[in-house]
Every structure is written in C-alpha cells, then in structure tokens.
Design a protein around this nucleic acid. Structure first.
Length: 420
RNA sequence: GGAGAGGUGGCUGAGUGGUCGAAAGCACCGCACUCGAAAUGCGGCGUGCCCGCAAGGGCACCGUGGGUUCGAAUCCCACCCUCUCCGCCA
C-alpha cells in the first residue's frame, strides 16, 4: 500500500510503477475518488463541529430554548450520518484501488512484463559432470524406499507425498541445521501457524488478488498460509515498535499450503511442486531507512546462499524484473538451484524487500529518535523449503548405483554417515 | 462443548451520560540540581485524518458493529477476543 499523499504528489512515479509492473489500475479514478472522499470528509467534519457546539450549549441553555436546540443538533447529526454513510461507500471503493497500488520498484530492476525479463546476475558452483546417466529424484526416491508418491494420492490427491525412512529424517535434520545456523546469525527461531485470518493475508499483500492460491477453511473464516510471512507480518501488526526493539530478525518455521491453481499440469511429477510443504523463512523488520533495508536484503541473500553452498548445490542468482516481482516488492532476488534431471535451474528461494508497503497494510510502525511515528521496512527470504530443495539435493549428490552422498555439513545430524 | 469473569493510552489502573482523549502511578523525553550518576523538582508525553507556510484549528477513535440520546468510554443489543473452572483431546 502506498500513502495517498505520496500518490498525489508523485503521480508520475506511481504511473510508471503501474506500467512497469504490468498492473491494471485506473490511477485517474483513484485520485478522483481520493479528492471526493476528502471533500466529503471536510463537510462531515464541519457538520459534526456544529452539532458538537450545539450539544455543548444544551446543558446550560434556558429551558425554553432546549427543544429547538436539540432539534437543530439532531438534524445536523442526522445529516452528518447520511454523509458519512455515503463517504464509507466512497472509501470502500477507494481502498479497493489503494490495495492494488504497486510498490515503486528499485531503479536497478530489469523492466519487463514477466519472468522473461529476469536477469541472471551470478552463477555459483558448477553443475556436476555425471559419468553416468543421472536419475531424477523420483527414481532415486523410489529405488531407495524414501517416499510414497503414488499411493498417497488415494488419501490426499495429486501433488501430495510422504517422505519415508532416512529421507524423512533428512528433512528434519535440514530444518534443524538451517534453524541453528540462522540462530547463530542472530535470528530468533519461531514457529508460526499456517492458519490465519484473511486480514493477515491483506497485511502481506496476498489478498486481494491471490485468494485462489490459498486453501480456505470457511467454517472458521480462516485460510491456510503459503508462507510464514503471513503470520510474521501479522504478529506485530498494529504495533508501534520502540527503536530499541529493532531490527527484529525471525527464522520462521511453518507448514505451508498452496493450491497451485493455475499451474495445472506443471511439475506434476515428484516433489518439486506440492500442495503442502515445510519452509524456514528469514524475516526482518527494520527501520525505514533504504540503506538499512538494502543491507538486510544482502544479508538475507548471503545467508540463503551460505546454506546452499554448504549443501554443495550449484545455483544462480536472479534479479527479478518489475513484471515478475509482484505488486508489493521493492526488490526481489530469486535463487535457482541446479536440477540435473531437468538440465536447468529451478527456483528454490526468493528474497524480497518490501520497504514500507506491507508495513502500511499491516499498520506496523516504529518511533524514531524524534519520537515521530513511521512505518517499518519488512523483508523476507526463503532459508530452506522442503521437499523442493530435496530435489536438487538428491539429484546433485547421487552416485552411479543410485545412492546419495550427504553433504558434509549435514552428516553430523545424520549419524555421521556419508550416505543417506 | 458447558459455566463464569473481563476487554480503557507502552504498562498498571480510575472513570456519577455533558467541561473525558480520558485521573493517578510506572515507563519514556526535555530542563534544573550534580564532577558524573542516583534521588529529587519542574515541564512534556496516544493514534489517524482534514484545513493551514506556520502558529494553530477541526473531526474521529476507550475490543468490533449497530441502537437509545441534544450529547455515550459510561445505557441497550449483537458479535469478536482474552482469562478461570468443568468436559474432551495431542
């Protein structure tokens, strides 16, 4: 969400963001609604002021004047009430527009309508040359009894899975390992609910717009979140944080649910794109200083890269284009891990800076040295998501006989064994 | 699921339907005292929006939404949430 005053005063910048982010939004209409709403508000305030004035006189007024005074005050109040109802309608419409206002992307973002405009900024690690034909992760998992991929659809439908045996253990080991490392980087491990109220989804910017991506629990008015970001943004929502509390660094762990509506037929095989998964998310709330949030952006990315490096997974860093980064993002970098069976890099991580766009929606603020109240900046980045990351992990480290060599970093948590 | 209690500013906690955006204390900020600190004293100290260059002015908000009234934190209704006890459960 953008400040309407900002929109009024930086119309050109907002127009460009709308265009670059490929957003369908009538800015003229928005500004017109804003004008009307402010004009209406002025009138209502004036009516109420008069009403309040009459009411204040009522008590000490001569008894003879009271009926007339009361009547006039009541009439003013009723008029204000009617005007207010009309204003509420205006504001409802205005808010609908306001919620779809995109954040202003940073000047370094490639401009383009979709992921085709994304830029590879760095390659890290070298994809392994296999002296044999590498198997894909589904084969590896099946020949080792590490999952139930077919059977479980009887129970839970497509895009669901069971991890079994040592792979089930590895998932937990990876999560524990990543959480520990982040803790040493100063992040507070925190587990959060996947269940959340729709307001929380509005707070992050997932609603309105991406309702189709979330599972709904209508009986209780709740939705299942596809990321810990939802709960973590809401966690401090409405608060005014003290400067001393900042930055807040969370390593949020949660089950994640995604309906994958619109990706029917894509990645249906295996563990790459599933409806339910586990994710450890780095999350930062900091002061609204662009230099500071830029520093955190770099650190989040570095932390995620460190984990990938320690797991010996080759990856590339993507600078996401304006059209692909999403409405609320200021900047977004994806990490894509090498998947041998596909012969390409696939997204396993996403690092985003939202500036105060989310903070405005979630009403998340801090008080600065001059005791002024300001919105915070928020950032989030995948630290580790499974089972998606298991795909490159298994495939990159497979041996000719179908075993998987564990990266050294994770061996201590897997009984010191070299192989899974 | 059953029974009860309660939701007021960062916290604790007052608040006869009118001068209450809200006492008091704590916390916090400024100043004084001090070599410095503590203690003490004085002053300040909610949020949002609108108008204004500013000074300042106005409106709204005491869980949420309705209602009664000239006037609601205070009365009425509904809902939400929290806490305690019982039941059930991981």
């Amino acid at each position: 969400m953008l400040d309407l005053r900002y929109v009024r005063e930086h119309r050109g910048t907002v127009e460009r963001a709308i265009r670059d982010k490929n957003v369908d939004l009538d800015l003229d209409r928005l500004l017109r609604l804003d004008d009307e709403a402010r004009a209406a508000l002025g009138g209502i305030d004036e009516l109420r002021r008069e009403r309040n004035e009459l009411s204040a006189r009522f008590k000490d007024a001569p008894p003879a004047e009271k009926p007339a005074l009361g009547q006039r005050a009541k009439a003013l109040g009723a008029e204000a009430g009617r005007a207010d109802a009309a204003l509420a309608e205006l504001e409802g419409e205005l808010r609908g527009f306001q919620l779809r206002l995109p954040n202003i992307p940073w000047e370094g973002a490639p401009v383009g309508p979709d992921e085709g405009a994304n830029v590879v900024v760095r390659l890290e690690g070298t994809p392994r040359e296999f002296p044999f034909t590498p198997r894909d992760h589904v084969e590896l998992v099946e020949m080792n009894g590490w999952a139930e991929l077919g059977r479980i659809t009887k129970v839970s439908g497509a895009r669901t899975y069971c991890l079994k045996g040592r792979l089930a253990l590895l998932e937990q080991a990876l999560m524990f390992w990543a959480q520990s490392r982040l803790m040493h980087h100063g992040f507070t491990p925190i587990t959060v609910p996947a269940l959340a109220k729709p307001e929380a989804f509005v707070g992050t910017g997932h609603f309105p717009g991406h309702e189709e991506e979330a599972y709904e629990v209508p009986k209780d008015g709740l939705y299942l979140a596809g990321t810990a970001e939802i709960a973590l943004t809401g966690l401090h929502g409405g608060e005014i944080l003290d400067e001393a509390q900042l930055p807040i660094l969370y390593a949020g762990f949660s089950p994640c649910f995604r309906r994958e509506a619109g990706s029917a037929g894509r990645d249906v095989r295996g563990l790459l794109r599933v409806h339910q998964f586990l994710k450890l998310e780095q999350y930062v709330i900091c002061r609204d200083d662009p230099a500071e949030s830029a520093t955190w952006h770099a650190r989040l990315l570095a932390n995620a890269e460190e984990l990938l490096r320690l797991l010996d997974i080759p990856y590339q860093v993507i600078e996401t284009s304006t059209g692909d980064m999403g409405l609320g993002k200021f900047r977004m970098n994806d990490l894509e891990s090498w998947v041998p069976s596909l012969g390409k890099y696939r997204e396993t991580h996403s690092c985003s800076t939202l500036h105060d766009w989310q903070a405005r929606r979630a009403n998340l603020r801090w008080r600065d040295g001059e005791r002024r109240v300001r919105h915070v900046h928020t950032l989030n980045n995948t630290a580790l998501a499974t089972p998606r990351l298991l795909v490159p992990l298994l495939e990159n480290h497979q041996t000719a006989d179908g075993r998987v060599r564990l990266p050294e970093a994770i061996r201590p948590l897997m009984g010191g064994d070299e192989f899974l």
